[in-house]
Nucleic acid binder design. Structure first.
Length: 651
DNA sequence: GGTCTATTAAACACCC
DNA sequence: CGGGTGTTTAATAGAC
């Protein structure tokens, strides 16, 4: 009591400052809700504004074309009529230059969605709304692309006419002015639609529906759209873009940067062949199929083709070779209503999965955060370098979470370290009194072998001032077993503690005393006189004897422990079976081999020994094959007699 | 509530 | 004598 209060007095949670400075976007309650509505509204606004602008620009150009060429009038009117009619009157004033329009933020990308999700900015209802909006936008964009494609054809015809006129009249100047004016307008429109298309491609790409090679991520802006236009238009486009596209490209690339990193790779795309193939009909569906097939560097790898089976949803057609698959892909899954619908379904599936993933991530974050928060408060050190000054799993909630979480969290120390200065006080208030000695490490309580945990989270324990959730006995044993000769002097054990655990780099008097106490107290630690002095070794038999009755009686408990500790069903089942049927002493598989295997062996061994009977327990010399002690060490068991003598003396 | 075990502190002894 | 090492006891607390 006195000791605890003494250490407790030092625990003014200075860890809070660190927690506040967290970089990671650990979900914090409270803040998100206020931020949610504004984010949603702005996103939707941008969304609508952008669509309107794109439509308006397209309409404008169409009008210009109609003035010059009548044959397309009917079609154009159909197009304009099909699009939202009310936009006409509204958007007279909305004739924003494309460059400006492109500056406006894009639609919500999946990444942004992810961010929003992870930040817990939105409620599920709001997320639903956003998802629906995104879906609607995609539909609209698709329609816009169809419209754009038709318009391209019109322009193509028109240009052909103009070229003929040029050839006949020979008056280049006026014609060129006409053309350049058209070019400008068209360029603007093109950029706008490119943007939309790019957005689609990126969406699909992110969702795994479209496989564009990393080096070709620059394709959408230039080449894919180039592929859409007839060759003559490409020429025009190049001429115009020579002067203008750079700034436009900068704009778009800056937008890319705003949206996400993965698309901003500016590989200059100059492969007309691929491009033309890749965008036969201006639909992202076609990009998905043909673009991925033709742009694939490795000829036989296709996201829709695996193990000789077409992976198109619901297809599963079998093919002997890749070519026949491609044929099948182009024939059976061409751009039609069915494929489009399937693609939409797939998009929804992906989105749902992303949602689910985000939720699970969030849950994991919360779990990790929660557990680390618990461990932050008690017994903060005078010089608390890290938030997690102490993992004292002792009293509050010792069993439920620690065995699971602790081995996980240490592997990602930075993430959980950020937590929550806010919830900090709240949660820790419940276990303010829970500090104190590290009682009940789960290594003991659950017979948890510490080896896997230590090896997995070595760096974490080394660098983080977290109290390891193991008993002193377990740690000492681990230290000894890790040594080459399975024996250590007391000082070497000390060094191991300080080397492996940042936590033991302070309060030396306390834990060193505890180490000595444990060494003396537990029979499993055998003191051996060596050439260079006394060394300590481990008597595995005795070590396993320490807690026999607990686990031996309940295989179910063991199973639960095993599974909950993450060893998986295999080990658990094996362990359970062997425990139920025979008491094979696996502990002879001592510590050789790789650390991982070694740890696993230790794990099994410990569990097995905890469960088996202790009939053959007498004497540390009785099992030479099992004992990891070297011959020298085993030969001179000095400790016990002395201890016995002393005890007899005192008692 | 009893028992077992772990942790911590402390006293003490021995040895160099 | 002091420090390191080792032993033992006592108090306390959690888990079963």
């Amino acid at each position: 009591m006195m000791q605890e209060s003494g250490t407790e007095a030092t625990s003014n949670g200075p860890a809070n400052e660190n927690g506040g400075a967290s970089v990671e976007g650990v979900p914090r309650e409270g803040r998100p809700k206020s931020a949610a509505p504004s984010a949603e509204v702005t996103a939707a606004d941008f969304l609508h504004l952008q669509q309107h602008q794109a439509l308006q620009m397209a309409r404008q150009i169409l009008l210009q074309q109609q003035q010059q060429s009548q044959p397309q009038q009917l079609q154009s009117q159909q197009n304009t009529g099909r699009k939202s009619p009310k936009a006409n009157d509204k958007q007279q004033s909305l004739q924003v230059p494309v460059s400006v329009a492109m500056m406006t933020p894009q639609v919500i990308t999946p990444q942004q969605m992810q961010q929003i999700l992870q930040q817990q900015v939105l409620s599920p209802q709001q997320l639903q709304v956003l998802l629906q909006q995104q879906q609607a936008l995609m539909l609209q964009q698709q329609q816009l692309q169809e419209f754009y494609k038709k318009q391209q054809e019109q322009l193509h015809l028109q240009l052909l006419q103009q070229q003929q006129q040029q050839q006949h009249a020979g008056s280049k100047q006026s014609k060129e002015q006409q053309v350049s004016a058209q070019q400008l307008a068209f360029q603007q429109q093109l950029l706008q639609v490119q943007q939309v298309q790019q957005q689609h491609l990126l969406n699909l790409q992110r969702q795994g529906l479209l496989s564009i090679q990393p080096g070709q991520t620059g394709l959408p802006l230039h080449s894919l759209t180039q592929g859409m236009i007839p060759t003559e238009l490409q020429q025009l486009w190049k001429e115009v873009t020579n002067a203008h596209v750079k700034e436009e490209h900068n704009n778009s690339s800056s937008n890319n940067g705003h949206r996400g990193l993965d698309l901003s790779s500016p590989a200059p795309p100059k492969n007309p062949l691929l491009n033309q193939h890749a965008s036969t009909n201006g639909q992202y569906m076609s990009h998905k199929r043909e673009g991925s097939t033709l742009e694939e560097p490795s000829p036989h790898s296709h996201p829709l083709y695996g193990h000789g089976v077409c992976k198109w949803p619901g297809c599963e057609a079998v093919f002997d070779d890749f070519q026949s698959f491609l044929k099948h892909l182009n024939n059976e899954h061409a751009l039609d209503d069915r494929s489009t619908a399937q693609c939409r379904v797939q998009m929804q599936v992906v989105q749902q999965l992303e949602l689910q993933l985000a939720k699970d991530k969030e849950r994991l974050q919360a779990m990790m955060t929660h557990l680390h928060v618990k461990s932050t408060e008690p017994k903060a050190t005078p010089q608390p370098l890290n938030l997690v000054s102490n993992v004292t799993l002792s009293k509050s909630a010792p069993e439920a979470s620690p065995p699971l979480s602790l081995p996980q969290t240490p592997t990602t120390p930075t993430a959980p370290l950020t937590p929550l200065s806010q919830t900090h006080s709240v949660i820790t208030a419940t276990n303010l009194h829970s500090m104190g000695p590290m009682r009940r490490r789960y290594s003991e309580k659950y017979n948890m072998p510490i080896s896997p945990d230590i090896s997995q989270n070595k760096e974490f324990y080394m660098n983080t001032d977290v109290r390891p959730p193991f008993t002193y006995a377990s740690l000492i044993r681990q230290a000894i077993l890790e040594s080459p000769e399975k024996q250590l002097t007391l000082n070497e054990i000390y060094n191991w503690f300080t080397r492996m655990f940042a936590y033991f780099r302070r309060n030396a008097a306390t834990w060193k005393n505890a180490v000595r106490h444990n060494l003396s107290l537990h029979k499993c630690f055998v003191r051996v006189e060596n050439v260079k002095g006394a060394v300590w070794t481990v008597d595995e038999i005795e070590f396993q004897k320490r807690r026999p009755q607990k686990i031996s009686g309940s295989p179910a408990l063991v199973k639960n422990i095993q599974t909950s500790l993450g060893y998986g069903p295999t080990l658990s089942a094996a362990f359970q079976a062997s425990m139920a049927e025979n008491n094979i002493p696996l502990y002879t598989t001592a510590s050789i081999g790789s650390p991982t295997l070694n740890s696993l062996a230790n794990a099994i061994r410990e569990e097995m020994n905890g469960a088996m009977d202790h009939g053959n327990s007498n004497g540390s010399d009785s099992s030479p094959g099992r004992s990891p002690l070297p011959a020298i060490a085993r030969s001179v068991p000095l400790q016990r007699p002395r201890r016995e003598a002393r005890r007899a003396h005192t008692v």
